[in-house]
Simulated assay, not measured.
Amino acid sequence: MIKLIECPRDAMQGLPDFIDTSIKAAYLNQLLQVGFDTIDFGSFVSPKAIPQMRDTAEVLDQLDLFGTHSKLLAIVANLRGAEDACQFEQIDYLGFPLSVSETFQQRNTNKSIQDALQAVEEIQNLCQTNGKQLVTYLSMGFGNPYGDPYSPELVAGFVQQLVDLDIQIISFADTTGSASPELIGSLYQINAQAFPAIEFGLHLHTQAQDLAPKINAALAAGCQRFDGALKGFGGCPMAKDELVGNVATEQLIALLQVKGYDLGLKMDEFAEALKLAQVVFK
Rank of each mutant, 00 (worst) to 15 (best):
Q13G: 05
Q13S: 09
A11N: 11
I39R: 00
A82V: 03
A212R: 12
G228F: 05
A229E: 05
S101C: 10
R225V: 06
Q52P: 05
Q33C: 14
G42I: 15
Q207C: 13
F200K: 01
G35L: 01
E182T: 12
L243I: 14
P237G: 05
H69P: 01
S171M: 04
P145H: 02
A221Q: 03
D148R: 13
A273R: 00
K214A: 04
C86S: 12
F172S: 00
V76A: 01
M53C: 05
F172M: 03
A179E: 07
A220P: 13
G177Q: 09
L256C: 08
C7P: 08
K48Y: 04
F281A: 12
L138K: 00
Q13E: 10
S70N: 06
D227L: 00
R54Q: 12
K214M: 13
L252D: 01
P181F: 09
S112G: 14
N29C: 06
L79P: 08
K266F: 03
L32Q: 04
P213K: 06
D40V: 06
Q209C: 14
A254E: 13
A119N: 15
E182N: 10
Q161V: 01
Q209N: 13
N130C: 11
D92W: 06
L219V: 04
E89G: 07
A116G: 14
V244F: 02
D227V: 04
T109L: 09
M53D: 01
D115E: 15
R9N: 03
I23F: 11
D92C: 15
A217Y: 07
A229P: 09
A26I: 04
S112C: 11
A239G: 07
N110Y: 11
I2L: 10
S151W: 05
A74C: 12
A57E: 13
Q62Y: 06
G143Y: 08
E250K: 00
K240C: 11
A82F: 02
D64P: 12
Q128H: 09
F226G: 01
G234N: 05
K231S: 08
M53Q: 02
N246W: 01
Q30C: 10
A179Y: 04
L31V: 06
G232T: 10
L243Q: 05
A239E: 10
I91M: 10
E269I: 02
Q13H: 12
R9A: 06
F66M: 11
L28T: 03
L243R: 09
Y261M: 01
I190C: 14
D262L: 11
L60R: 02
Q161C: 03
I215A: 04
A119F: 13
Q209L: 10
K266C: 14
L72H: 03
L15D: 12
S151N: 06
N108E: 09
T103S: 12
D268V: 13
P145F: 01
L252E: 05
M140Q: 14
K259T: 03
Q90G: 09
E269R: 12
P47E: 09
I39F: 03
A85C: 06
N125F: 08
T175P: 00
G35C: 02
E89M: 15
C7N: 10
A248S: 10
L243P: 05
Y150T: 08
K71P: 07
K214C: 14
Y93F: 15
E272A: 09
Q161P: 00
P145A: 02
Q106T: 14
L154P: 11
R80T: 12
A25R: 02
D166F: 06
G157H: 06
H69C: 08
V34L: 14
T21M: 07
